[in-house]
Write a protein that binds this DNA or RNA. Structure first.
Length: 139
DNA sequence: CGTTTGACTACGC
DNA sequence: CGCGTAGCCAAAC
């Protein structure tokens, strides 16, 4: 009847979306999740999207060609453990693309945020337009 | 196979 | 802004 949820398939969708983030831009776990419908077989409220946690889990060990470092948390900061080599790498790779972090280690979504893929790209894959990134106060 | 863990978020105070 | 709480759900243990 229902197909069981297939995490592998869903990870591929997540990776496909993340691969669309252009250099010099960044997205958030929640924004990525907001484009992806729930797995088939799950009885969801129509409004619910993929859990942002799933996106984070998918980033943990992703293929080399996925620009995982362009995904930040909803506040625009790095979610990897502060001071860890991985967190340092993420910041370095973003800065190498011209992304600027403020004194609080936060990127300005208005500058480096991403609007999501083209509508046609989304429509072709049955995905939703992304929820806008939360705008931090005073910049 | 039950329990705990996390690269999450929204919301309340 | 900072801290706590409640949902979240695949993975790891």
């Amino acid at each position: 009847m229902f197909s069981p949820p297939d995490p592998r398939t869903y990870n591929q969708i997540i990776y496909a979306v993340v691969r669309q983030i252009p250099p010099g831009r960044a997205s958030s776990y929640g924004q990525i999740a907001s484009m992806i419908p729930p797995p088939a077989g799950v009885e969801p409220p129509a409004y619910r999207r993929l859990s942002p946690r799933w996106v984070g889990t998918a980033m943990r060990n992703c293929p080399d060609d996925v620009p995982w470092f362009r995904v930040l948390n909803s506040r625009g900061t790095i979610s990897l453990p502060a001071g860890s080599p991985a967190a340092h790498e993420q910041r370095a790779r973003l800065e190498a693309e011209g992304v600027v972090f403020d004194e609080n280690g936060r990127v300005d979504w208005a500058v480096a945020g991403w609007d999501g893929p083209d509508d046609e790209w989304l429509r072709a894959r049955g995905l939703f337009p992304p929820r806008p990134l939360k705008k931090p106060k005073r910049g």
